[in-house]
């Protein structure tokens, strides 16, 4: 009978939290692996326009970005508000695009060079003049696969 007595006297047992750190670690690793730190500091303001017929960009290692927009507020005192091109971490002019394309090609496996895509991330308020200049330079550099970065939306408005 002593067996039963013992059970009666016991309080509600505490919830075992020994596995809690394991669960948290698991979540931690998941987020650590999926996190992509932004590799460039944006010096230009970019709000991409919206479109309905968008494709997903695949093979991110084969995508190079060209940013176009007006300089961010902190840099406006120094650089003004005219639209500028940003390649990697610095402002650039259209003359820098061909060397940039060649540089990107050198870093890529020669077999995969034809698959390279240049993604133009331009601000929706940018003027087409500068975008056209970039496109013409890309043509000269024979980088013909381009992508206009846009957000997906269901419907466009006037």
């Amino acid at each position: 009978m002593s067996k039963f007595k013992k059970k009666k006297s016991g309080d509600i047992p505490a919830v075992n939290t020994a596995a809690l750190p394991d669960i948290v670690f698991m979540l931690l690793f998941f987020f650590m692996v999926t996190t992509v730190m932004r590799e460039v500091t944006l010096k230009v303001k970019v709000v991409t326009p919206q479109a309905t017929e968008v494709n997903k960009l695949e093979r991110k290692s084969l995508v190079s970005y060209i940013y176009i927009g007006e300089p961010t507020e902190q840099l406006q005192a120094q650089f003004g508000t005219a639209d500028r091109i940003q390649l990697n971490d610095a402002f650039a002019t259209k003359k820098d695009i061909i060397p940039f394309v060649e540089g990107e090609r050198e870093q890529t496996d020669p077999a995969e060079v034809p698959l390279m895509t240049f993604s133009i991330k331009a601000d929706m308020e940018a003027e087409m003049g500068i975008v056209t200049d970039v496109k013409q330079e890309l043509r000269k550099a024979n980088a013909l696969k381009i992508n206009y970065s846009t957000k997906k939306t269901d419907k466009i408005v006037d």
């Binding site: 993604s119 024979n142 997906k152």
Partner: peptide, 24 residues
Amino acid sequence: LLIFFLVTTTMDVDTGLTRKLPPP
């Protein structure tokens, strides 16, 4: 650490209009 990574994670997929430029 978990909260740090939760906050910094952005799960956006890059999307856009893919076009082909004419050769020079």
